[in-house]
Design a protein around this nucleic acid. Structure first.
Length: 303
RNA sequence: GGUGCCAUGGCCGAGUGGUGAGGCAUCGGUCUGCAAAACCGAGCACAGCAGUUCGAUUCUGCUUGGCACCU
């Protein structure tokens, strides 16, 4: 029998943590987090990382394991999560993944194409080109190196344009040749769940959670983090807004409203992503755990 | 009762005789190595009526509503 991977995903503040813990306890297994920000330590409040209490004795992986200045990516997550899971499979035939970083979830479930690692020198070369000669120059170079991708890339999206050129220069081959987009085979089955809140209610949960975070000391957490530097890990809802307060550019009420708004926007993007994938089982908020358990048992019996 | 000022999309708030303010909020979408990131798109507003004009949100008059002051 192939092992089963239960993925708890969905928008922020939808109650993923509690559901994942509930399932893991019921199935006597462990949780692997798929959250690009909870993976850093020192950000527990603003990322709503599971507390000791919330974990309820269930072992969690890939939470709070990185320092703020460490580089990470969806590809690394794929690698780390697969390694963690293969450990779990040794003693268990079911595991729970919990997280709202959609790209991480996809990298784990479907795989992400192998690509050369970009060296610091290459990265700096392209960023210098961008700084000195502008996006146009980077685009012009990309057009030469990889005309196919040049045609389809969102040319206003600097991030993607830069990355494509980095890969071209690093490998000496067109970025397109690495972009297979073919799902990888996994040694496990997957079932995805998300909690289906009416939008009004979800937004209400988000708003009050922001208040809770602030009451719990989000400002202090942000101050401590920014005191160490400005890292990508802090380019995160809750922190970038707090930065305005720290820099004296905004007051707390403004920041509170801004965080809530950006969190709502984030939640909507997550929902857009899921809508397109269209492969999750939506659960009733009032009965999510029971519905999930029933669905899992049905799968197990079918095997 | 009189005089003056004002009336812009969900909110705030510019402006002009002839496609576009902007901000906030809202909504939809893109997505393969920083993804809680980055990026794209939508709403088609000018209180009502009449007039001037080739054309009015912008000019004129009246009406309605609000504000201020006066008797």
């Amino acid at each position: 029998m192939r092992p089963l991977l239960i993925v708890i995903t969905g928008p922020t503040a939808s109650g993923k943590t509690a559901l994942a813990v509930g399932l893991a306890r019921y199935l006597s297994t462990e949780v692997v987090s798929a959250d690009s920000r909870q993976i850093y330590h020192d950000l527990p409040i603003g990322t709503a990382a599971p507390t000791e209490d919330e974990m309820g004795g269930v072992r969690h992986h890939l939470v709070g394991i990185l320092d703020l200045d460490e580089y990470y990516s969806a590809a690394r997550f794929e690698e780390d999560a697969l390694a963690t899971l293969s450990d779990i499979w040794k003693t268990n035939d079911v595991a729970v993944v919990c997280g709202g970083s959609m790209m991480y979830v996809d990298a784990l479930v479907d795989g992400i194409d192998d690509m050369p690692t970009v060296s610091d020198a290459t990265r700096r070369y392209v960023l210098d080109m961008l700084d000195n000669n502008g996006l146009e120059a980077v685009l012009a170079q990309l057009k030469i190196c990889d005309p196919d991708y040049y045609e389809i890339v969102d040319r206003a999206n600097t991030r993607r344009v830069v990355h494509a050129l980095e890969i071209c220069l690093q490998s000496g081959m067109p970025y397109s040749t690495f972009r297979k987009g073919e799902p990888k085979q996994r040694p496990f089955d997957v079932v995805k769940f998300a909690i289906d809140w009416p939008r009004e209610q979800l937004f209400g949960r988000i708003n009050s959670r922001v208040d809770d975070m602030i009451a719990s000391g989000l400002e202090g957490e942000a101050r401590r983090a920014f005191a160490r530097g400005e890292f990508n890990s802090l380019n995160t809802v809750g922190y970038k807004e707090m930065k305005m307060l720290i820099d004296g550019e905004a007051d707390l009420d403004f920041v509170r409203a801004r965080i809530a708004k950006n969190t709502r926007v984030y939640a909507k993007k997550q929902l857009t992503w899921l809508r397109r994938k269209n492969d999750v089982t939506w659960l009733d908020p009032s009965d999510a755990l029971a519905e999930a358990i029933a669905a899992v048992e049905a799968i197990r019996e079918a095997e």
